[in-house]
Simulated assay, not measured.
Amino acid sequence: MDISANNYADIRSRIFEALEESGMSQKEFALRMNVAPQTVTDWKKGKSASFVRMGTMLSMVLNVSPAWLVFGEGEKYLSKEENLKLLKSQINYDVSMLRDTIEVFTKANPGFSFLGLMVAAAYDQADKGTQAAVRKLLDVNEVPQESGRTSEAM
């Protein structure tokens, strides 16, 4: 979405018009947008325009068309099919960005393993009995201590 500084106030107005019509509280809206409630308050008061980077998400959460949100043109509300299409598009974009990030990170850090990180996280979340069983299977007395992780002797 191409958003110019000239229409921030108009976009802000349409965001809060749609929010009011949705019946959603600002707190719930913030949660769905994955921003702090203060951020939504700042948007409303004109103290921040960070919403300009969130056009697709705003459209999905408020169920309004991107064209209406940005330019005030066209149909206001999205059909269920249009909302799903927008959601799929956003998910595909997010997955693509994540893949690119992982590729760049692993090239820069050849010894790093995302699988190892996931295993370590699962171990940390496991109960003490499961952790002890894993250590026994791996034939280790303790797990090496890393940033924020604790090790326990068997």
Rank of each mutant, 00 (worst) to 15 (best):
residue 74 G to I: 08
residue 47 K to S: 10
residue 102 I to N: 03
residue 89 S to P: 00
residue 35 V to W: 01
residue 9 A to Q: 13
residue 151 S to T: 15
residue 108 A to I: 06
residue 16 F to H: 04
residue 119 V to T: 09
residue 122 A to Q: 13
residue 90 Q to T: 09
residue 119 V to Q: 05
residue 116 G to Q: 10
residue 102 I to S: 07
residue 118 M to C: 11
residue 44 K to R: 13
residue 20 E to V: 01
residue 120 A to G: 08
residue 73 E to L: 14
residue 119 V to F: 03
residue 88 K to L: 11
residue 47 K to P: 04
residue 39 T to V: 02
residue 142 E to K: 04
residue 10 D to R: 08
residue 112 F to T: 10
residue 98 L to V: 10
residue 14 R to V: 15
residue 91 I to Q: 07
residue 44 K to I: 06
residue 111 G to V: 08
residue 112 F to C: 06
residue 9 A to G: 05
residue 88 K to M: 09
residue 147 S to P: 02
residue 39 T to M: 00
residue 129 G to A: 15
residue 122 A to G: 12
residue 146 E to R: 04
residue 113 S to Y: 08
residue 36 A to L: 03
residue 66 P to T: 14
residue 108 A to Q: 15
residue 34 N to C: 01
residue 91 I to E: 05
residue 26 Q to I: 01
residue 140 V to D: 03
residue 105 F to D: 02
residue 135 R to M: 11
residue 112 F to P: 07
residue 76 K to A: 09
residue 95 V to D: 04
residue 127 D to E: 10
residue 123 Y to W: 09
residue 126 A to P: 05
residue 100 D to T: 14
residue 105 F to Q: 02
residue 56 T to N: 03
residue 143 V to L: 04
residue 130 T to L: 12
residue 130 T to P: 00
residue 48 S to Y: 03
residue 72 G to E: 08
residue 149 R to W: 05
residue 142 E to P: 02
residue 11 I to F: 02
residue 18 A to N: 02
residue 59 S to Q: 06
residue 123 Y to N: 01
residue 62 L to D: 09
residue 90 Q to M: 12
residue 9 A to T: 15
residue 113 S to W: 07
residue 90 Q to V: 08
residue 47 K to A: 07
residue 44 K to H: 11
residue 38 Q to E: 04
residue 106 T to D: 10
residue 37 P to Q: 00
residue 134 V to E: 02
residue 34 N to L: 06
residue 137 L to I: 10
residue 103 E to N: 14
residue 67 A to C: 06
residue 147 S to W: 14
residue 60 M to S: 06
residue 144 P to Q: 08
residue 145 Q to E: 15
residue 57 M to K: 14
residue 87 L to K: 13
residue 7 N to W: 07
residue 17 E to M: 04
residue 130 T to W: 10
